[in-house]
């Protein structure tokens, strides 16, 4: 499992091997909601997830 750095507290967080871009993780140590970003070379990093409300179409 890849280990990434939490952008909020700097701690480590393990990501499943099959994680997909946009997947959300909660960092148990600091409680941050994090979103996985994957660049065109397949490099993974985490960013703080934005607040998205559930407000959809028909």
């Amino acid at each position: 499992m890849p280990t990434l750095t939490c952008p909020v507290c700097g701690g480590e967080i393990e990501i499943p091997d099959d994680a997909l871009p946009g997947e959300l993780f909660e960092h148990e140590e600091c409680g941050a909601q994090l979103e996985l970003e994957v660049d065109e070379n397949g490099n993974m990093k985490l960013k703080e997830a934005e607040e998205i409300s559930e407000d959809w179409g028909e």
Partner: peptide, 24 residues
């Protein structure tokens, strides 16, 4: 327009995807 949506995907995991053409 909802530029992003948060979903539970087919594996039961939370993910952010592009919002398509829905609005609030």
């Amino acid at each position: 327009r909802k530029k992003k949506l948060i979903i539970i995907d087919e594996r039961g995991r939370k993910r952010i995807i592009k919002g398509g053409y829905t609005g609030s």
